[in-house]
Simulated scan of single mutants.
Amino acid sequence: MSTTRSTVSAATVEALTHRWQTLSRHLMPTQHSSLLTQLLDAWREPQRHYHTPQHLSECLSLFDEVRDRAAHPLEVELALWLHDAVYDVRAHDNEERSAHWADQALSDAGLAPDSVRRIHDLIMATCHAAAPHTLHTPDAPLLIDIDLAILGAPVPRFAEYERQIRAEYAWVPPQLYADKRRAVLRGFLERPRIYATPLLHDRLELRARANLTRATAG
């Protein structure tokens, strides 16, 4: 793909809608179709180029492959739906605001308090302030590995991802963006392990390091 913005097809929206309906039937006693509408609207906001339904769909597809590694799989899936529910490119508290949205929306939907708390913690883990293998929330390393799987994507998809991130920060001057972006990517490259879960480490670690090395060269 050569465009920066992900095109949201009717089929993608239909698939996400069906998936949400199935998920909410399993986990939430009260059905709230309005929450689905709010989430899809949020994921399609105009300032987003990477943090779009494309990213959500990629996360959910990968989760399907590793679902059996999760202690609370339905909670991990809900956390994926909500982890970028708030995305303001000029803010530094998107994860906190997304977690707050999850707290309120899922509590209103009738989710058990223990589940709401765990989902809150999972969303906050996507701040990526700590390496995933250092986290003690059982499902956090898996969720973070899924969120960071883009770093180990095939070269064309990684290149598209880099263009999409740049588009989200188009307001930042080129040299400043280049310096800041290089520092962020080097932070991942300098970790002893990028991926904590054995399966995703084996699948993605080497390619992620190759992608990051190329992206931070110079």
Results as ranks from 00 to 15, higher is better:
Val76Pro: 05
Leu80Ser: 02
Gln38Asp: 12
Cys59Glu: 01
Ser107Tyr: 07
Glu14Lys: 09
Val172Leu: 12
Arg118Pro: 03
Glu168Arg: 03
Leu78Gln: 02
Ala112Asn: 11
Val8Asp: 05
Ala102Tyr: 03
Pro113Ser: 11
Leu62Asn: 02
Glu162Trp: 09
Ala196Lys: 02
Gly110Ile: 12
Leu189Asp: 05
Thr37Tyr: 13
His128Met: 05
Thr4Gln: 15
Tyr161Ala: 06
Arg207Leu: 14
Thr216Met: 08
Asp41Gly: 11
Ile194Pro: 00
Ser33Val: 08
Glu77Ser: 03
Ser115Met: 12
Ala79Arg: 06
Val184Lys: 03
Trp101Gly: 01
Glu162Lys: 13
Arg48Pro: 13
Tyr50His: 15
Leu78Asn: 01
Leu40Lys: 04
His92Glu: 10
Ala125Phe: 00
Ser2Asn: 12
Ala196Asn: 04
Arg214Asn: 12
Glu65Gly: 07
Leu39Met: 15
His120Val: 01
His18Glu: 15
Val86Gln: 02
Pro113Leu: 12
Thr22Asp: 14
Arg214Ser: 13
Asp114His: 10
Thr30Asp: 11
Arg191Val: 01
Pro156Gln: 05
Arg191His: 05
Trp81Gln: 08
Arg181Ile: 09
Trp81His: 02
Leu206Phe: 09
Gly218Arg: 11
Arg186Glu: 12
Leu199Val: 14
His49Thr: 04
Glu160Arg: 15
Arg67Lys: 14
Arg97Asn: 03
Arg193Ile: 06
Arg48Met: 11
Leu35Ala: 14
Leu143Phe: 03
Asp68Lys: 07
Ala215His: 05
Met28Asn: 09
Trp43Arg: 11
Tyr169Trp: 06
